[in-house]
Simulated scan of single mutants.
Amino acid sequence: MIVLLLGILVLAIGGCVCVVWADRGGPRWVRAVAAVTLAAGELLRIARRNRRRSIKRSSGGDE
């Protein structure tokens, strides 16, 4: 389990490094990894937002 979490952490850090490097004009593969990283982050934001909405609806939404 710890190996899996460490692998995810390494991928996340690597993705962040690629985003910074791509912003400074890195090679094509770095820009591709950065685009995938940013898209994954956006998908996670959307999923979290939708989850919050469904939780508010199921609890009454008066919070």
Rank of each mutant, 00 (worst) to 15 (best):
I46E: 12
R49Y: 12
R28I: 04
R31I: 00
I55A: 13
P27I: 01
G60S: 07
L11S: 11
L11V: 06
N50M: 13
C18M: 09
G14F: 00
R45A: 15
R48N: 12
W29K: 07
V36C: 02
L38Q: 11
L5K: 10
V20P: 04
G14H: 00
R57N: 14
V10I: 14
G61M: 07
L6S: 06
R28H: 06
D62H: 13
V20H: 05
S58R: 15
L38Y: 04
A32P: 00
D62P: 09
I13M: 05
G41A: 05
E42L: 15
A22R: 01
G26W: 00
V19E: 03
D23R: 11
G60Q: 05
L6H: 04
V3T: 14
R31P: 02
G25R: 00
L44A: 13
R51I: 04
E42C: 10
V33G: 02
L11N: 12
S59L: 14
N50T: 10
W29N: 10
C16Q: 15
V33P: 02
S54Y: 05
V30C: 06
I2V: 13
V3G: 12
G61E: 05
V36G: 05
V3P: 07
R51P: 01
L5I: 03
I2R: 15
L6I: 04
A34W: 00
R48D: 14
R45G: 13
V33A: 14
S58T: 10
G25T: 00
A34D: 01
E42R: 13
K56M: 15
L44N: 05
I46F: 09
A39L: 13
A12G: 11
R24L: 10
V17D: 05
V30H: 00
V33L: 12
A47I: 08
R53L: 10
T37N: 04
I13W: 03
D62V: 08
P27H: 01
I46H: 07
G7T: 04
R45T: 12
V19Y: 01
V19R: 05
E42H: 07
G26M: 00
M1C: 11
W21R: 13
V3L: 11
A12K: 07
L4W: 07
L6A: 09
V19H: 05
I2Y: 07
R28W: 06
N50V: 10
R31Y: 00
G7P: 03
V10L: 10
W21C: 07
G60K: 07
V19N: 02
R31H: 09
G7S: 08
L6E: 11
I2N: 14
V30K: 00
V19P: 02
G41R: 01
A39V: 08
E42F: 14
W29H: 13
A39D: 06
C18H: 05
V10F: 02
L9M: 09
I2Q: 14
V30S: 05
E42T: 15
S59F: 06
I13G: 03
V19T: 03
E63K: 12
